[in-house]
Design a protein around this nucleic acid. Sequence first.
DNA 1: TTTGTTTGTATGCATCACTAACAATCGACT
DNA 2: AGTCGATTGTTAGTGATGCATACAAACAAA
Lengths: 157, 157
Amino acid sequence: MTRQKEVLAITTPHVEGDEDIGGLGDIVGFHLRLAFGAVYRHFTETFSHLNLTQKQVSVLWLIDDHDDIAQTDLATRMRMDRATTMAVVNRLQARGFIVRGKSLTDGRKQSLHLTNAGRKALVVAKDAIALHEEWLKSRFTAAETARLVEMLTRIHE
Amino acid sequence: MTRQKEVLAITTPHVEGDEDIGGLGDIVGFHLRLAFGAVYRHFTETFSHLNLTQKQVSVLWLIDDHDDIAQTDLATRMRMDRATTMAVVNRLQARGFIVRGKSLTDGRKQSLHLTNAGRKALVVAKDAIALHEEWLKSRFTAAETARLVEMLTRIHE
DNA sequence: TTTGTTTGTATGCATCACTAACAATCGACT
DNA sequence: AGTCGATTGTTAGTGATGCATACAAACAAA
C-alpha cells in the first residue's frame, strides 16, 4: 500500500507536494471520479474476504428490503441497464445467494429472493459496510455528511 | 431516455415516488456511486461524438500540461494502476493521439507527448467538458460547488 | 385478434481494475 | 567495478461493469 507518497519529480521539478493535476483540478467531475475511485478501492479492500462488490451488496440489500422484486425494478432503483442487472443477478445466483422465481402476478417478471446463504452474506456485508462508512465519514462532521449526501443527491436524482 | 419515470408498483405498492432504496439511502458511499454513475453517463453522452472516456480525456489533459511525463507519473496522479495506465495509453496511441518516446534522463521511463491530432482532440474535448461541467454545476451555487469539491478532495487525497 | 410494449435473456464489444510475472534499467552499497 | 534491490514498462489473465442489439414470451390496449 505504499502507493500514496512517491517521488515523481523530473517533469515537475518545482512541485513540492505530490500530484499536480493542473487545470484538471478545477473540474468537479474529476474530483468526483477520484473520490469515487478512492471509496471503491477502500470498499473492495474491506470486502476482500467476502468477495463482494458494491453493486452486488447493493443488490442483495435491495432484494432483502423488497422481497419478490423484479429485475427491472432492481435496475431502475440502481440506475442500471437490464443487461447489466442480468449479469449481476447471474453471478449472485451462481454463488447461491439468490434464487429466481416466476412472478405470480406477471408472467414476464422474475421474483428475486435471498437464500439463507444470501441472508447470511448480507448480514456480514452490512457489518463490513458499517466499517467502510465509518472510514468514509470519519473525515466529516455529521452536518457535513448530511450536506454532502444532499449535494450528491441533487446530482443523481 | 424514458428511463426516469417508470411504474414499478406491485412489490412496493405504497411508494408514491420512484425508487425507494430503503436502508441503502443512508449509505454515503451509495450516493457517491449513484452520483458518479449519473455524471459518467452524462459525460459519455456529451462525448459520444468524440469517442473519448473521462479517463482518456484526463490523460490527454495531463500529458498536455506535463509534456514528457512518464507513465508511472500519470498513474500516480490519476490514482491508476500501472497496468491500467498501459491500457489507456495504448488505446490513445493506437488512435494517434499520443506518442511514446524514451526518456533521456531515465532509460526505464517513457516520455509521453501529444501529437497534433491529440492536441486537436483535446481542444474539442475541453469544449465538451465545459458543457458537461456546466450541466453538473448548474445545480449548485459557486459557494456550494467549492464546498463540494473541498469535501470530495478530503475523500480522495 | 392484432399490435405495440415490457421483461428477461443472450451475445458481443469496450472499458477498467487488479494480480502476477518478466526484462531492462537505475541507484545504492560494498 | 560489481552486485543487489527497487523502479518502470510490459504482457497476460481474471473479473466486473456498461451499453447496444436482437429475440422470445407475456402482457396490455386497440
